[in-house]
Design a binder for these strands. Structure first.
Length: 106
DNA sequence: CTCGTGACTCCCG
DNA sequence: TCGGGAGCCACGA
């Protein structure tokens, strides 16, 4: 548990299996900072490509995509659908159904 | 080194 | 019920 926040975030996100998702706050919480949700988003921005992180499996607390339409929203939605995740009419998914219980992993 | 910003979340009015 | 403000920390310039 001596890893730094960034490293843990990367590890956690990379541990999310296909067809599952996690929220920023949850990842941050798992990494040690429940208030680090913003950093998770920033890390994703900075390291998603470098470390090949499944950024599309990370969404906000509402089970919705935080990205605006045309700003990556459609891309994330498509990637998630490819993994079997179904979106509701409001563009939200069932977190109860797809949320990755990473808590058990530890 | 310092400053600014951000794909969030929670609490209070 | 809904909106606004504050908190938090890392990364890039």
């Amino acid at each position: 548990m001596t890893e730094i926040f960034t490293t843990r975030v990367r590890d956690i996100i990379s541990s999310i299996p296909p067809g599952r998702v996690m929220t920023y706050g949850l990842v941050a919480s798992r990494a040690g900072n429940r208030s680090g949700a913003r950093q998770v988003a920033r890390i994703l921005h900075s390291s998603s490509e470098k470390y090949d992180l499944p950024w599309h499996r990370v969404m906000n607390r509402d089970g919705k995509i935080s990205l605006p339409r045309g700003g990556g929203y459609e891309q994330q939605k498509e990637l998630l659908e490819q993994e079997g995740i179904v979106f509701g009419g409001n563009g939200c998914i069932d977190l109860e159904e797809y949320l990755w219980p990473a808590n058990n992993c530890f």
